[in-house]
Design a protein around this nucleic acid. Structure first.
Lengths: 182, 182
DNA sequence: CGTGCTTGAGACGTTTACGTCTCACCCGGG
DNA sequence: CCCGGGTGAGACGTAAACGTCTCAAGCACG
């Protein structure tokens, strides 16, 4: 009977990503709980947003750890990263689109994530796996965009859910152009 | 002295994309006008959002027309589309992230845009230019994500503004993997 | 130089969502 | 069986943003 905090946060992320102005009442209903209960677990809207941020960053860090970005080729590491990101794609989409979190000062946790991902792209460039005419900063942002798009595309039923990894990995690595090799 | 309606809308799009919960007062200040003046031009928040939607869709349609998606190779048409999208990238980012516009019924204008872009990808697949293991729907969503990411990356100063076209075109067409050919 | 239109600033009442609280209910454990 | 913690529904006062209005000031144009 006790409310599953993670479940509430995930449904809130899904709702708030689509409709950032959603009411606390709407957030509660989307989670299938009463507004009073929502307030019992999260002191207010700010606390809810903060909890979303924390959970998202925690899962993102965990995904980065699990992906072991320093091992194997950068290509393989990138594949692992995308695979690990799948379960938290909805939270990531929220984090990425809700830049409002960092209106004053840049967020520390987010900076760390940024740096780790950019380092992966840089490693791939130095090893000769990745092209060097696109900067690591843009590649990082592009990855964010693709993850968000994929999350929405699946959420809205435009693409199949089990294509998540393939969709992102293939497009990011090989692009849309038909390759002669392979 | 008269307020430039387009200018107001563009600054509103930039602000609301970053912070969807921004006050009318904040929107006005961001545009450099008073709140009263903002209300004179847009009856209310809903009207402002609607105006943003209309302007965005109008510019998007114009970009699609100007890109002449049916001519030349699909690759060249895609390049033109991205080039034409640059001036309105901020508005597009708003439209893409503010799915709340279409909570009830799917938006007609947006469906039309979707169909035109998906058709371009389909044409490229049929002509053998594009790979066929990624569906047109996903490719369309992926393009949206890259456009949004590029707009933000430039707005936040992480990447240079005049790289817009190159960033998107190259990543979307060729991917991040270093190609042996060319 | 004067008239008229548009603006910015601010006051005002209204609406809306917020956050707190109460109370009856239900489910699970002792 | 009963008891207690957690819940949903709803009432309530509060805070914030909304939308309207007034008024003085500025610029444009005749």
């Amino acid at each position: 009977m006790t409310v599953d905090r993670d479940r509430v946060l995930r449904s809130a992320a899904a709702l708030l990503t689509r409709k950032a102005t959603a009411t606390m009442d709407e957030v509660a209903k989307a989670a299938g709980i009463g507004r009073a209960t929502l307030h019992r677990h999260f002191a207010g809207r700010d606390a809810l947003i903060k909890a979303l941020e924390e959970l998202g960053l925690r899962e993102l860090d965990a995904a980065l750890d699990a992906a072991r970005l320093d091992e194997d080729t950068a290509t393989e590491a990138l594949r692992r990263l995308i695979a690990e990101s799948e379960s938290a794609a909805g939270l990531f989409a929220f984090l990425i689109t809700e830049n409002q979190l960092f209106e004053d000062q840049q967020n520390e946790g987010w900076d760390r994530v940024d740096a780790r991902i950019a380092a992966l792209f840089r490693r791939g460039q130095e090893s000769g796996e990745f092209r060097i005419d696109l900067g690591p900063a843009w590649l990082t942002d592009a990855l964010y965009g693709l993850v968000t798009s994929a999350a929405w595309s699946i959420q809205d039923g435009r693409t199949a859910g089990n294509d998540y990894q393939h969709m992102i990995v293939e497009l990011l690595l090989g692009g849309v152009r038909r390759s002669v090799e392979k």
